[in-house]
Design a protein around this nucleic acid. Sequence first.
DNA 1: GGTGAAAATTTCAACAA
DNA 2: TTGTTGAAATTTTCACC
Lengths: 150, 150
Amino acid sequence: MTKRDPINENILRELQANGRISNTELAARVGLSASACLRRVQDLERSGVIAGYRAVLDPVAMGRGFLAYIGVGLSNHSKAAQSAFEQAMDAAPEVVEFHNVTGIIEYLLRVEVPDLAAYKAFHTDVLGVVPNVSAITTWVVMGSPKDGRK
Amino acid sequence: MTKRDPINENILRELQANGRISNTELAARVGLSASACLRRVQDLERSGVIAGYRAVLDPVAMGRGFLAYIGVGLSNHSKAAQSAFEQAMDAAPEVVEFHNVTGIIEYLLRVEVPDLAAYKAFHTDVLGVVPNVSAITTWVVMGSPKDGRK
DNA sequence: GGTGAAAATTTCAACAA
DNA sequence: TTGTTGAAATTTTCACC
């Protein structure tokens, strides 16, 4: 079983900061031998605590320099209307993530596009085309003083 | 200089999906020799297109099973009031990221905590203590049909 | 959890298209 | 410039203590 001890905490902290650190270096930092360290990492991977590894890409270089959140309400609360909306968002590459939330709005979208023009296009050509979408509120991100997931 | 050619696009796609793929395997997938591939990856790292690598951790296992977004307005728009707020959010581990946005609210926070009780505590003990905070709107995330950054 | 060693990978200098 | 080859240095990985 995967334990929650200080060494594993350290391992996770290091891997979150640098997902490509070598096992040798990681072992040294957490004070274990390479094999003991590897065993723990593999354990964390198998148990799902470590879900995977990702390269973090520069948004501007990737043509995603314009970031906005969009709150969306649906005028029709049927299961079918929700499915249609979710499928459309799933298929839209501009929508990096979206959440089903409590409150007046139903969904909160995170949209990443190259620029304002592309945002406008998304708004009219993608969002504007999905049935039953109402109450669209846009929050354009001007800056992110903190982004731990960057 | 770092080019934007199909091979680099593939490299970035692979590394985004699996940040710990071996260079050998990556080279095979994009159709290059290991060294040519490595040179490109190092180039992308140096130029900042690849900003880093991260392990993706399971939120529930990490005690962050409760996710909410919070819109915050400030009753005082002075530089000092903003700085104070930003410093407080920066220091709060529950706030995974926060953005400065356009619109009625000033900030959009992403908050991750173990459960509702912890959220309540954050709301009163952290947010409630920062000066000039007004107009707090909470959207509790009930589900995330898509989360490309997970 | 540590040791030791085999297998695999990383990394780079030299060279070719 | 961009890619390939070859080989040394380093790392990964695992059976055994």
